[in-house]
Design a protein around this nucleic acid. Structure first.
Lengths: 206, 206
DNA sequence: GTCTATAAATGGATAGAC
DNA sequence: GTCTATCCATTTATAGAC
C-alpha cells in the first residue's frame, strides 16, 4: 500500500536522503487531495507547497505548472473509467454488460476516489479542462448506447429516455464522491451492490 | 416570469435612464450565471464587471463584496429547499410525505436552477460557505428522518441504510443541475416523474 | 533537490471626480 | 450610478545560489 507507485522505469525508488524528497507521484497525490478540499482554483501553489513542507520553487522543480498536476490527475481518472467500458464491451447480454459497467464504475470511483472527484468538478476553464470534459462526454455516450441496447432488448424500461436514464443513474453513482470515505463502515462491494439494487429495482418495497 | 423579483419594498422598479442601470437582483442573477459557468473562485470581479458592461467600481456601488453576492444566492437556494420540507411536514403517511419531498426538491432545483447549482458546488472555503454547508447538512438530516420513518412503516426497503439511501437518491436529484436546461425537450413535471419512478421502482422491467 | 529573492500579472477593494 | 486611477495582497512562475 505504501510502496512507491512506479512513475517511470525505476523498479523501486529508494527513499531520498535529506529533506522531504518527494517524487512526482507523491506530490501529485497530495496536490489532488488539496484540490479536492479547497477546489482547484482556490488552491494556490503556495498552499500546496506549504502542505508539502516545501517552497514553491522546490515544487516547480518537480512540475512545470499547476495545470500539469491537474492534467495528470484527470488523465488517471479518465483512463480508469474508459477501462471499465473496454472491459465490459466483451461481455454477454446488454443487461450483463450494463450491470458490469455500473458495478465497475462504482469500483473505479472508489479505488480512484481523489482523481475521479477532481474530474467530476472540472468546469472547462482551460484547454486541459475542456479536453477532459470532452473525454467524459464520449464516455457518457458509450454508456448511453449500452442503455439503449438494453432497452431494445426489453430489459430496461423504455418509458424513460435512455440518455436521461443514463444521466440520472450516473448522477447517483458520481454523487458518491461527495460523501464516501474508504475508512467508513461501508465497503466497496456493499456500496456497488446497494447502488445497482436501487437503480435496477428501486427503493420501494414490493 | 420576466417581472421584477421584488427585492425590497418598491412594487415595480422603473427602467433606469442612461447607461445599463442594473438593480441588485439583475446583477445577482448575472453573477450567479457566471459563477456557475466558471466556478466561483475562478470568476474575478473584473470578469463579472466585463460581462455586465460595467467597471469594477460601478459593481461595488451595488454590492459590498464578491462574497455578499455568493451569500445572497446561497440563501435563496437554501430557503427554497427548506420550504419543501416545511410544506411536506404537514402531509399524511411517511410514503406520501417522502414522495412530496422528492418531487418538491426536483421542482425547486429546476425553478431555482442557478442558485441551487451554486449551492451544490460550495466547498467550505469561507464562513459564508461553511454556514451554507451546515444548513445543507440539516436539510439532509431531516430528509433522512423521513426515509427512516418510511422504512419503519415498511414502505421503503430496509436492507439498505436510510442515510445511504437518502444520499444516493439526492445524489441523483442534485445531479440534474449538471445537464438540465429549462429550454430543452423535457419539462419539469416529466423530469420529476422520471426521477420518482426510477428511485422508487428502478429501471429494470418486470 | 531545496532554498531566497524577485518578477510580472491579477486578485479584491477603495477614493474621489463627474 | 458610473467612471479613472490606485492600493496592496496574492498569484503563477523564474533566476540563480547552495
Amino acid at each position: 500500500m505504501s510502496a512507491t507507485p512506479a512513475t517511470g522505469a525505476a523498479p523501486a525508488a529508494p527513499a531520498r536522503r535529506g529533506r522531504p524528497g518527494y517524487d512526482r507521484a507523491q506530490i501529485l497525490q497530495i496536490a489532488v487531495g488539496l484540490f479536492n478540499e479547497q477546489g482547484y482554483d482556490a488552491t494556490s501553489v503556495a498552499d500546496l507547497a506549504a502542505r508539502l513542507g516545501l517552497t514553491k520553487s522546490a515544487l516547480y522543480h518537480h512540475f512545470d505548472s499547476k495545470e500539469q498536476l491537474l492534467a495528470e490527475a484527470l488523465d488517471e481518472a479518465l483512463s480508469a473509467l474508459e477501462g471499465v467500458l473496454d472491459d465490459a464491451a466483451t461481455g454477454g447480454t446488454p443487461a450483463e454488460r450494463l450491470d458490469a459497467v455500473l458495478r465497475g464504475a462504482v469500483e473505479v470511483l472508489i479505488d480512484r476516489l481523489p482523481s475521479v472527484t477532481l474530474l467530476l468538478r472540472v468546469r472547462g476553464n482551460s484547454d486541459t479542462e475542456r479536453a477532459a470534459l470532452e473525454r467524459r462526454r464520449l464516455f457518457d455516450q458509450r454508456v448511453t448506447e449500452l442503455v439503449r441496447a438494453a432497452q431494445d432488448a426489453g430489459l430496461i424500461r423504455a418509458d424513460i429516455d435512455g440518455a436521461v436514464t443514463t444521466r440520472l443513474v450516473f448522477g447517483m453513482i458520481n454523487s458518491v464522491v461527495e460523501w464516501y470515505r474508504p475508512s467508513g463502515p461501508i465497503d466497496r462491494e456493499r456500496l456497488a451492490h446497494d447502488i445497482v439494487t436501487i437503480t435496477l429495482d428501486g427503493m420501494r418495497t414490493r
